[in-house]
Design a protein around this nucleic acid. Sequence first.
DNA 1: GCTAAACATGAAGCAAATTCATAATATTCA
DNA 2: TGAATATTATGAATTTGCTTCATGTTTAGC
Lengths: 301, 301
Amino acid sequence: MHLEFRHLRTIKAIHEEGGLARAADRLFITQSALSHQIKSLEDQAGVELFVRRSKPLKLSAAGKKLLRLAERILPEVEALELDFEGVQSGRSGRLHIAIECHACFEWLFPVLEEFRKAWPDVDVDIRPGLAFDALPALQKEEVDLVVSSDPEDLRDIEFSPLFDYEPVFVASSQHPLAQKPFVVAEDFREETLITYPVERTRLDVFTELLTPAKIEPRSIRQAELTAVILLLVASQRGVAVLPDWVVREVKYSSDYVTRPITKKGLTKRLYAAIRSDEAQLPYMSHFLRLARTEPVKLQRM
Amino acid sequence: MHLEFRHLRTIKAIHEEGGLARAADRLFITQSALSHQIKSLEDQAGVELFVRRSKPLKLSAAGKKLLRLAERILPEVEALELDFEGVQSGRSGRLHIAIECHACFEWLFPVLEEFRKAWPDVDVDIRPGLAFDALPALQKEEVDLVVSSDPEDLRDIEFSPLFDYEPVFVASSQHPLAQKPFVVAEDFREETLITYPVERTRLDVFTELLTPAKIEPRSIRQAELTAVILLLVASQRGVAVLPDWVVREVKYSSDYVTRPITKKGLTKRLYAAIRSDEAQLPYMSHFLRLARTEPVKLQRM
DNA sequence: GCTAAACATGAAGCAAATTCATAATATTCA
DNA sequence: TGAATATTATGAATTTGCTTCATGTTTAGC
């Protein structure tokens, strides 16, 4: 029947203006055009849309149905057009974040809370599922920002530094290693290591310490939540290596100590990877600014 | 942004078929046309609808919004097109009935009940409001059928007879006039007449009897419902003139008698007026058939 | 019944969507 | 990694069909 939005707007205009000529004015076309238009629509639909017997053209029963359709559909279309204007102006958009580091939840949530206040129209989400090949997902626009500590040189992807952190050794204050001023790889040989349930390549303790030194802990135990890891450490079920800010922020138990890893400690840098073409988006730069400053505040607490 | 249904169908097809070429096949146009189409839409919307980085074209965030719009809107449009097909085939349509005679509710309801079983897609309604100029309303397609007892010769309007009825005199069996074998105009001079609350020109007792004889009843009392009129009559608050079928059907009280008006009684004929161009509609002829037979069954009860 | 208003119609012009032919790019598999 | 294949993009020519212009027909109101 070849209905078009034009027809819906026409039906609506004729009904509201009460006549072809006035509707034509409103739609900025001629009365003739409207006459042709509704005629061809009636021909194709095989249904009379207007009552011809009366002169200021009036809707028939079928015409009223079309009018109701128009009144339901047109506002939706206009809403979408407004939305797209928002995207175009950078006011709205999508910010789906993939995090490679499991502990990053800790500082990301407060940042996002702050962000959402400023950018209510931006669709924010965290996607923990695809933690492995997050960068390909970023290229394919499945996500819009990846938090990573390993910058790579990829086309159309920019890495911008967020903040530095120190992976620190955590143990119960009763633990023998708590006596040492710092720990080394060798110290883990007889320990139970508690980690997040992710691959070793994504755990600092392995990538920065144990794997290079070719040392294997006595056993490994996994826990999902930071609070649980600290609980296990405090009750002497093992030791852990966590970013400094995590240990400082979470005060669930004070029955543990932190020690640097190696004499001068480790330093790692966190990066945000985004697509180059979105680097200029106002909400994107605002997010990066927040993600650079908010976690630092936490570290100072 | 000049969105068209074409674009919505395109978005949906590309998403569901997973690629331009297959979508093009489904829509019976070339792959090139689709490519041009989405390009021009993206230009006008100022928003990327698809992710170009991957090869089987994938929807972007904005594209998904458009897809959701398409999935909400397109089924509605298809439903309306189906509905219009129904109108075209005569399976569905509108049957708004205006009744001039107030008592007609009594037989019309059962008829409509029966009718709705056979024609569920026809939009049925009774419009009592415009009882006066019902015929102009019929011409203007404000209603589709008028029940009237006065056929007129109007262009594009057809009157078809429904059934005959007899306006009869109703009084309490205790009433003096109950003794007479029939009543005449003169008998009303000292009576309280109970009527429906409508103008005299639409009451048989006036048009057929009192107005021609220039006789005025002692007083007139009005009641909306037939049952109430009969109740008042039975309790000797007045007398009434009602169609025979009403008195026979309603058995609320048996404490009244009916008498012919004038020695040989009155006979009136009810007509259905419809627009000539709708006389051939299948549901219309079915309704007329029902309206001719059903009330007769009631009269025989 | 006449006048003004409202709608319909036919031909011509024009803008926009589609097609055709071909180029550019991405993916796959060896 | 490179060749083969699949997928999308582009430009010019064509066609489609919407709109306008000019004018005819019908309706409403006095």
